[in-house]
Amino acid sequence: MESSISSELQHSATEHVHDEEGNSMFGFIVFLLSESIIFLSFFAGYIALKLTATDWLPPGVSGLEVREPAINTIVLVSSSFVIYFAEKALDRQNLWGFRILLLATAAMGSYFLWGQATEWRGLSFGVTTGTYGGLFYLLTGFHGLHVLTGVLLQGIMLARSFIPGNYEGGHFGINATSLFWHFVDVIWIVLFLLIYIWQ
């Protein structure tokens, strides 16, 4: 009986060792949780400086335009659903559906980046304009870097989908890309509330 238990355990051991995909996903989630703390720190800094500042907005600035960023937000948040359906398409082995949906996600991400760049160009304050200017560009810029990373990851995943046998080892790459994209989205929602809604 002892030996049957141990052989059973042995079986689960070999599974354990070969579950590299599971390890990678676990590690990636741990990494994202840690990464979210950088954002939380920036948010905390933003709130602290805003609450203690004597002159918050730079002279001549009355606030931020909300309409364009709101459209941007809608595009970015909807792209989270698009990449979700892309994942589902891959699970159903619908390779072309997956590629088209992934391309759509990347396009929506790029639209967001373009919208962000347009907004930056139209602003009357710079990164050295008081703590407000610094924080605005720090938060949106750091998030923008994550969006850019997400779009690049999607591009890599799209290119790799043309390699024969790419999915034999599992779907870790696309699952991680998708999770990262959801993460970037959730961060943006908090950021949007903090910077644009709470003025």
Partner: peptide
Amino acid sequence: VGLPALTAGAVMLLLDLTLGTSF
């Protein structure tokens, strides 16, 4: 949990030092 907070502070200090921000 902790290290990202130092990273955030270090990034802001680096920007203060190089770009002239005022965090």
